[in-house]
Amino acid sequence: MMAALDGFLASYGNLVNLCLLNTLLAYGVWLALAANMFTLGTGGFMAVGAYCSVYFTMQLGAPFAVAVVAGGLLAAAVALVIGAPVLRLRGDYFMLATFAFTEVVRVIALNWDAVTGGAIGIYGIPRYTETWQLVLLVLIALYFVFALRRSYFGRSIAAIRQDDVMSEAMGVNVFGQRLSLFVASGFVSGGVGGLAAHLNFFVGPSDFGLLRSVDALAYPILGGVNALLGPMVGAIFTTLLPELLRFSSQWREILMGLLILAVVLFLPGGAMSLLRWRPRKAAARRPSTQGAE
């Protein structure tokens, strides 16, 4: 049994790690999406976490776990600082402000040679990230999200997502909850950045741009924001699919584009909506009563 597992991991280890890593990231982004925060800041938080943790292990000689947590905490601190002003912006402005943040981080990474290695990036990062650690973290994330969703916090978060004005009037501290979730999302994204850096031997500024942020958003959206396993399904689907499509890399991009389009167009609730068995919901899906008079 163990031998079979070892053999499997030897052949597909990288892919498994990638799936786990992206699953973790998907739940990080979900934390923001759950309260209707369409964040393009994920790439920026990942970069902060990645460079910070690499600095800890390679320059300071800190233990791996400390380095990853430090990366996550620094990203969370950054999220706290930018979150307070950014969260006051309405929908699209919030999205664009987080986009601008990610670009600021990318450009700083491009130029702060002493810490980030500039445009070349940092090579030869020791490989500390292991599959069992990722499995453990994914399980923790799953439990966290599970417990959160079924608690009264989950109820208020779902309410914020659908109608923040009403939630506020019912006594929910909308700003406080959004900020907490944004910071938590930053923490997870930063941690994933650190884990990814110590998995790939390399970090560079081009790893964390706009596309990285949108990809990360696509995981939970494609899988389904309303389902516990949605983000995981979306992350694994999006990660595995290009590998399974054994075509030229160009054709892979084309097919990925087509598949994502198909999911978005034909499964508006994400892939997990296929599995949902709540006939009542269909009747309930109508324009919600929003907007003050």
């Binding site: 369409f38 999205m95 596309l211 949108v214 958003l217 696509a218 959206i221 494609l222 160009q250 054709w251 892979r252 991009e253 084309i254 990925m256 584009g257 087509l258 994502i260 389009l261 978005v264 167009l265």
Partner: peptide, 14 residues
């Protein structure tokens, strides 16, 4: 947003 980026990806691939 996700769909338009997928479309962009498709066109870049083509």
């Amino acid at each position: 947003l996700v769909a338009s980026l997928a479309l962009a990806r498709l066109l870049v691939g083509v």
